[in-house]
């Protein structure tokens, strides 16, 4: 507990400074928010446009699909707001700046990601929360305390899955140095969690459920909530998968940090 407070305090201090320093570049700050807004609205609009023509997609109607869409974006928020610096890991590894993470008496992952907070993603956060409330209303979900709790647990599990996958992919930088292509590649895989996985053929469904757990990022929990009605034990699979993936991610990170030798002679 004491350690947690210690870490939180350091994080808050760095985050506050980071936000302050970003505000100095007013135009950049503004365009960041605007960009995030435009991107999210446009990708949301593409669903709207498609549903102008068809009433439903693979048994999912308009509001259900938007709920899935909103949930997916909510799940990616913790990673995109707090762990954005993972995109620059390969940079830090290549230039040798990563070495500084070793020289602080802190967890290396924590130290690396702290001091960089992507406030502009709050736009997407607000949009997705709005979308979830709006579509949730339209879908007449009957909330109970247990359902709410399970929903929260599933959300946490999904967020941990996504974060874990991001950490694992980013960690490859310790071995292959330039891993931009892997980072970009794994972004494409998110499409398998953004749509109902039932639209894909069997091999894909199998692969993205049991091999790479992308199905657990949005489809599995939303399907449970919207299609199964009452809480069952199977709702807990998502949190379990989340913990598993995250634990694996921590392991991979540790191994990477250990074998990284820094640049220069």
């Amino acid at each position: 507990m004491k350690t947690l407070i210690y870490y939180v305090r350091i994080y808050m201090r760095l985050a506050a400074q980071d936000i302050k320093s970003r505000m100095v570049y007013k135009v950049d700050f503004f365009f960041g928010f605007l960009g995030e807004f435009v991107i999210n609205v446009l990708s949301f609009l593409s669903i709207v446009v498609i549903f102008q023509t068809i009433p439903q997609l693979a048994g999912w109607d308009y509001y259900e699909l938007l709920f899935l869409y909103g949930f997916f974006h909510l799940v990616r928020m913790p990673t995109d707001i707090f762990f954005d610096k993972l995109w620059f890991l390969q940079n830090a590894v290549r230039t040798g700046d990563f070495i500084i993470c070793y020289l602080r008496p802190l967890n290396t992952l924590f130290y690396f990601i702290s001091g960089e907070i992507r406030l502009k993603n709050i736009t997407a956060l607000v949009l997705s929360v709005f979308l979830l409330i709006y579509t949730g209303n339209k879908l007449h979900i009957s909330w109970t305390f247990l359902k709410g709790l399970c929903f929260f647990l599933m959300f946490t599990g999904s967020a941990l899955t996504l974060l874990g996958i991001r950490i694992i992919v980013a960690s490859t930088a310790f071995w292959v140095i330039n891993n931009v292509f892997l980072m970009n590649f794994h972004l494409k895989l998110y499409d398998f969690s953004r749509y109902p996985i039932s639209i894909f053929s069997k091999p894909f469904r199998f692969f993205f459920t049991y091999v790479l757990p992308f199905a657990f990022i949005a489809y599995v929990p939303v399907n449970a909530l919207l299609k199964t009605g009452d809480v069952t034990l199977s709702w807990l699979i998502t949190p379990l998968v989340g913990c598993g993936v995250f634990a694996l991610a921590c392991l991979v990170w540790t191994l990477g940090v250990r074998q990284y030798t820094g640049t220069g002679t």
Binding site: Y25, D28, F30, F31, G32, L34, G35, V38, I39
Partner: peptide, 10 residues
């Protein structure tokens, strides 16, 4: 503009 990255994304 001092901000091309935001512009690029848009």
């Amino acid at each position: 503009f001092e901000s091309a990255l935001g512009l690029k994304l848009i």
